[in-house]
């Protein structure tokens, strides 16, 4: 969990993923044959196959949601826009931290009716007395991440950026199993997922894989009054059937199910509405890629308290490893 904690607490809003990339390179460099960073900042790590195999791509995104400063007013308050999907109500009286360590409190215009809150009525207060003073710390275009602590909730852990550092964590742990098969395996840590799967779009084109699996968080249907979603925390890793970006290829779904059964991995099937992930871009690359998604059940996504289950994380790592191990042979 120390690695997960480190990954979550590091800041890396979309387009500013370098901190995360550095941590990951440190963790995986001894286990892969080569790694490179592409023009969009994707970290592409390759484990060469023994020959005659397929090209398999795994993807987890490094970026997290955040805010970006658009205006610094005369009083020193910062107006901001969103990076990725931000619910204004999740931001009220939260703190955000800029790359240089400056912290601000998020609040809203005094005349705002709570039912009508939106980001244009909100500001960041960094304690500056004037525009001039504020500009010493923050510039227009600076981005900031939510401030959050990493907490252990018995069965669960909670922090900001669990979306998708939890996926990065699982993929790193899988890399460390140091499996070598006949397949060429591309472990890709992508950028700008929260802005529309942008890193994965070009990474997918560059890698041009035979099969692709993204690892990301998904929602659950197990909090009070939740609607039509069967996924539950602690009920195992998810094999995605569909989301707004992809209908997982039936071959990949069946393959993952078989892998889970062989290795006794606890899994559940996931139907997600209103969300998408890297595979959505990868499967439409070039002349098409058979792709699927391994998801980690998560509560309170895009908040400072994104929560996942420790057990589900273990099952997720096991499933990634199993999909490597059984090598996508047509025998399934």
């Amino acid at each position: 969990m120390e690695l997960l904690k480190k990954l979550c607490l590091a800041n890396g809003t979309s387009g500013e993923e370098e901190n995360i990339r550095d941590i990951i390179i440190e963790e995986v460099k001894d286990y892969v044959d080569e790694y490179k960073t592409d023009p969009l900042g994707n970290l592409i790590c390759v484990k060469k196959g023994t020959g005659g195999g397929k090209k398999i791509m795994y993807a987890a995104h490094m970026d997290e949601i955040g805010v970006i400063v658009t205006v610094i007013d005369d009083k020193g308050f910062l107006r901001f826009s969103n990076i990725g999907g931000i619910n204004p109500y999740n931001m009220v009286h939260r703190k955000v931290r800029f790359k240089n360590g400056t912290v601000g409190v998020v609040s809203f215009d005094a005349d705002t009716k709570m039912g009508e809150l939106n980001l244009s009525k909100m500001f960041i207060d960094i304690g500056a007395k004037s525009k001039e003073e504020a500009e010493k710390y923050v510039q227009i275009g600076d981005s900031a991440s939510l401030v959050s602590e990493f907490v252990d909730l018995n069965n669960h852990v909670s922090c900001k950026a669990m979306d998708d550092r939890a996926g990065c964590y699982c993929l790193i742990e899988a890399v460390k199993k140091n499996l070598r098969t006949e397949n060429d395996i591309y472990y890709v840590f992508t950028t700008q997922e929260e802005l529309g799967l942008r890193g994965a779009t070009t990474a997918g084109f560059n890698v041009d894989p035979d099969f692709a699996i993204a690892i990301d968080v998904t929602r659950t249907g197990d909090i009070p009054e939740a609607k039509r979603m069967a996924v539950m925390m602690d009920n195992g890793v998810c094999i995605k059937i569909k989301d707004d970006g992809i209908i997982s290829h039936p071959y990949v779904v069946n393959y993952m199910k078989e892998c889970a059964k062989k290795d006794n991995i606890k899994y559940q099937l996931e139907v997600l509405e209103g969300g998408r992930t890297d595979s959505g871009a990868i499967h439409l690359t070039r002349s098409g890629v058979k792709a699927g998604v391994i998801s980690i059940p998560s509560r309170y996504i895009h908040s400072p308290s994104e929560t996942v289950s420790k057990k589900d994380l273990e099952e997720c790592i096991k499933l990634i490893v199993a999909t490597e191990k059984y090598q996508f042979k047509e025998a399934f």
């Binding site: 249907g221 609607k227 039509r228 979603m229 069967a230 059937i241 569909k242 209908i247 139907v271 509405e273």
Partner: peptide, 17 residues
């Protein structure tokens, strides 16, 4: 549609495609 959930009474809830 696809099946999103099986209710306790055996009916199904669905997600649109």
């Amino acid at each position: 549609m696809v099946v999103a959930k099986i209710n306790d009474d055996g009916t199904l809830l669905a997600s649109p495609i």
